[in-house]
């Protein structure tokens, strides 16, 4: 009975034989596998895509404008003759970067706010009312308002979306932390005389990481969609830098003559969001004890 196995990063608290069980559970979880494969494929294309394109995303070629998809221009060309595949690939850098940054920032902020709110009564009242205020606005309106205040810039998109989505993460963290807080081991720590810091950050925090991870994947997907919507409305990533949103915007007026300008970026967004949501749902099944199907 050796139990010296190192900690597994995704499933802390697991020794070797349990971990192999976890790996089997992951492999048996079709949602995680499908979602993960889609995302890996998109990531791969985003990385090696620039090598496969006939021209760069900014190179205009006026004689060859609005060409339908062909063997040279896989997704066709746009109204300036730019290769659409190159632009979608380049746009994926922006979209994935925005999505990832927002997921990361909201997780950090949400974790801190949620934990503090769960543990301290006064802070809870103040913080939760502020978050309620934020959540009273439709996400997209709030994002537009913040963009208007900050100015149209890629970095500001990240800031705006992080502000919009943090309340959602904080709520999830708070409610999970409230459950953990009622566990006897937390009472036991208080009986031993542990400080609030120790109780909150050393003992409660690791217990809310799984719901946080799940929520982060959904925020990832949501912020990709919202970024696209912002860019489509002209309040997101400024042209000529391509993002999936402003490629769609460019194609809007030509939707009947050049369908490829809306269909391909649209399909890409759909595929990515689908992949992330699959992954998130699958992770929830894996990590949420209420969904576990282990019997004694």
């Amino acid at each position: 009975m050796t139990s010296f196995a190192p900690r597994s990063p995704l499933f802390p608290g697991m020794t070797a034989d349990r971990r192999s069980l976890q790996l089997r559970r992951i492999r048996n979880n079709s949602q995680v596998m499908t979602g993960g494969s889609i995302l890996l494929l998109i990531l791969l294309i985003a990385l090696i895509g620039p090598l496969l394109t006939p021209s760069g995303p900014y190179e205009t070629d006026t004689p060859n404008r609005l060409l339908p998809p062909s063997t040279t221009n896989w997704f066709g060309t746009d109204n300036f003759g730019r290769d659409l595949f190159a632009r979608v690939v380049s746009g994926s850098h922006v979209s994935l970067m925005v999505g990832f940054s927002v997921a990361l920032i909201t997780s950090g902020l949400g974790l801190v706010i949620g934990l503090v709110a769960a543990y301290f009564k006064t802070a809870d009242r103040i913080l939760m009312r502020i978050l309620d205020g934020f959540m009273a606005f439709p996400a997209i309106l709030l994002a537009i308002a913040i963009m208007a205040a900050l100015g149209v810039q890629t970095e500001n998109v990240i800031v705006a979306l992080s502000l919009v989505f943090t309340p959602y993460v904080a709520r999830v963290v708070r409610s999970s932390a409230l459950v953990v807080k009622e566990q006897t081991y937390i009472e036991s720590l208080r009986a031993q005389g542990a400080s609030a810091y120790r109780v909150l950050w050393v003992n409660i925090a690791p217990n809310v990481l799984s719901p946080l991870l799940i929520q982060a994947t959904f925020i990832f997907a949501d912020s990709i969609i919202t970024e696209a919507a912002l860019s489509f409305l002209g309040a997101g990533v400024p042209p000529p830098e391509p993002s999936w949103g402003n490629i769609l915007f460019d194609g809007k007026t030509l939707i009947f003559s050049a369908w490829w300008m809306t269909v391909f970026p649209g399909l890409t967004i759909m595929l990515v969001v689908l992949g992330i949501n699959f992954l998130g749902d699958g992770l929830r099944d894996l990590l949420d004890p209420r969904h576990k199907s282990i019997r004694k």
Binding site: L21, R24, R25, N28, S293, I294, R295, K296
Partner: peptide
């Protein structure tokens, strides 16, 4: 018997 993730068990 139950089918569990660690194989069947006879309870």
């Amino acid at each position: 018997s139950f089918l569990t993730e660690r194989g069947p068990v006879t309870a």
